[in-house]
Design a protein around this nucleic acid. Sequence first.
RNA 1: UGGGGAGUAGCCAAGUGGUAAGGCAACGGACUUUGACUCCGUCAUUCGCAGGUUCGAUCCCUGCCUCCCCAGCCA
Length: 550
Amino acid sequence: MEGALSNSNFIKNIVMDDLESGKVREVITRFPPEPNGYLHIGHAKSICLNFELAQDVGGKTNLRFDDTNPTKEDEEYVKSIQEDVRWLCFAWDNLCFASDYFDQMYERAVLLIKKGLAYVCDLSAEEMRQMRGTLTSPGKESPYRNRSVDENLDLFDRMKSGEFADGSKVLRAKIDMASPNLNLRDPVLYRISHATHHRTGNVWAIYPMYDFAHPLEDAIEGVTHSVCTLEFEDHRPLYDWVVEQCEMPNRPRQYEFARLNMTNTVMSKRKLKLLVDQQVVDGWDDPRMPTIAGLRRRGYTPESIRNFAREIGVAKSNSVVDERMLEYFVREDLKLKALRSMAILRPLKVVITNYPEGQVEWLDAENNAENPEMGTRKIPFSREIYIEQDDFMESPPPKYFRLFPGNEVRLKHAYFIRCEEVIKDDSGRVVELRCMYDPETKSGSGFTGRKVKGTIHWVDASFAYPAEFRLYEPLINDDEEGVDEDFLAHLNPQSLEVIQGYVENGLKDVAAMDKFQFFRHGYFSVDPKLSTPGKPVFNLVVSLKSSFQI
RNA sequence: UGGGGAGUAGCCAAGUGGUAAGGCAACGGACUUUGACUCCGUCAUUCGCAGGUUCGAUCCCUGCCUCCCCAGCCA
């Protein structure tokens, strides 16, 4: 059963303290993505944190698009982000856009100018960089720093009306060019950009910078706890400065936590976009991608991702979570949900020589032995079947429990068979096995005469239905050196393997996203893009654990 | 060599003056018509290092080491 309440973490402790002390009455959080890419599992951590922080104490959470940079943003992304948040089963209280506050932000900027706390600066980007100083030496004040309020007001108004070229002027806060915190060295508040915004069109020729816009957005929405990642930690003094100097009635507080990193993958929009643009993968929703869309298509469930997000915790130290933890949670979730079935990925034909030709038996099979509510089904059995190539070895090592000459195994849901003969082609490759079955060993008959060490799965040859299986491995092997700098050089060439095999006949017309556990292989999910009626395509979600190794 | 953060097991992560939670992984064993699942057991005499305060320190103090972030008109 899924825990109703999320695990404790330092931010939640702060929230609880604030509630207890009366510092806040109602908790309001927000998830503030910029619509410039698809969401990934790292965002899922943030989504779960923000929504559950509020949910657990009867608060509210807004989904807010931080769309202050029209050159990078796109409507496609605002759609996909909403879809992903909804899919994770979170309902936002308000759908907000930073662009809806552009007028208010402008007014606050004017207020700063009037207070003598902001000025229009004509320095070029390059000049500004040079005058900013370095980590160890102070910056120099801009020659435009002491323009009169009236001149600043006039210039800023004309920036707004589109009178000036991109990059020719900016509005800057007047703080402290000697601050050891570079963010406080007269940061840019507004830049000129004649780009077309996906929502406001060409109304604006100036757009606010993150450091100015974000605190105002939070304050406007009454956000109490503004949660972001570690790299914004030293922006906090500026965040507080903006809220205070702009005289915002609400005072949001910013808290920072460590973003999620996982082994064997990359977790930045930039890198993910590179994989998409260079066609290393099929798109943002390629099942190998750590995007929400990719994980969904792969077959991960919202529950598994939410449980994962809870269990990894929230802290301030940079860390790398083992991908096997994510895998654990999807196995755990699918265990009781996925229908058990038999699939042969690499077929080896077996003829049961003492089984009557032409005869077909319909055997009983549980749909999920661990969840009897899922019922049973009938599966056909006759003289010729397919088993997995891996389940036969002519010269097996010790402790090999499967088929080998002279050995007897159980066919799941059917009979014991013994391998009597191995048929090979001219090249010496095993192409067929001749076996004998024992009618007394039928499954469910209660036979206890003797035991076998191994049980293998199979599919009846004449009823087997052809299917495509897409097997995945990590996109990147990051146990090598230097992966971070040049991850494209460390791509796993085996990240995708497409093979043709067989499934039970009943799986001929599966629906997109249907989940199965193919015995002794793993959990599979029907691909929503590639699978068509009559031509099923299964994605490997995650394989079963196995302690067996040759 | 400025500023801001972080160091607890292989990986996450609680605890923050009273003698190291939990999860993942791993490894034993039991069970087994999935080499799965489940169950049982093992897995930090020690919390980056060195001093100090204290009856007692992962927790307080001092010094040091290591790692991450900051010099976009990105977010």
